[in-house]
């Protein structure tokens, strides 16, 4: 996974370097342009136990702005937006590591620097008693819940 490039970004943007879990530093370029979540769709991905993407559906590709080739093998944190508090992802990983389901509202980063809100659910994939990876399914969130998160998340840094 590379740093984000100015030529990929739409509109005005800000720059920040994030320390991504299991990866290291990544230069992030992000704008204030929101993409609405498409009605009736589910964004689906699977990762291995280390959080590397092994499968994405077309909705994931469409909403993230990356190609399938760019996504497969990349860390799931390729979607990590700087407005998301690290505590939310710590909770996700701690919960998943216990073999439990996790659900939360997430602001995801697009390749073009824009963002989209989702209601995300992650569950461990258990095969023959062993966790072999994780499935994450994102659906359209309620705007009211998103507004609550917009107010809450800045307080969690």
């Amino acid at each position: 996974m590379e740093d984000m490039k100015p030529e990929d970004i739409t509109g005005e943007y800000q720059e920040v370097t994030l320390e991504l879990y299991g990866w290291g530093p990544r230069k992030i370029l992000y704008s204030e342009i929101e993409s609405p979540y498409p009605d009736g769709r589910l964004i689906v991905s699977r990762t291995d136990t280390k959080g590397m993407i092994t499968h994405v559906n077309q909705s994931f590709i469409d909403m993230s702005g990356y190609t399938e080739e760019e996504l497969i093998g990349a860390p799931h944190s390729i979607l990590r937006h700087p407005d998301m508090p690290p505590a939310a992802f710590k909770d996700l990983w701690d919960t998943s590591a216990r073999g439990e389901k996790w659900q939360g509202y997430v602001k995801n980063l697009r390749k073009d620097g824009g963002y989209y809100w989702v209601k995300a659910t992650a569950i461990p994939n258990v095969r023959n008693g062993e966790v072999v990876g994780f499935t994450s399914v994102r659906r359209k969130p309620s705007r009211k819940k998103v507004e609550e998160c917009i107010a809450l998340y800045p307080t969690l840094f």
């Binding site: 659910t121 569950i123 994939n125």
Partner: peptide, 13 residues
């Protein structure tokens, strides 16, 4: 099938 079961599982949560 396991993938579909996992997916339905996320939707029931």
């Amino acid at each position: 099938m396991e993938f579909m079961i996992d997916l339905v599982d996320t939707l029931l949560f």
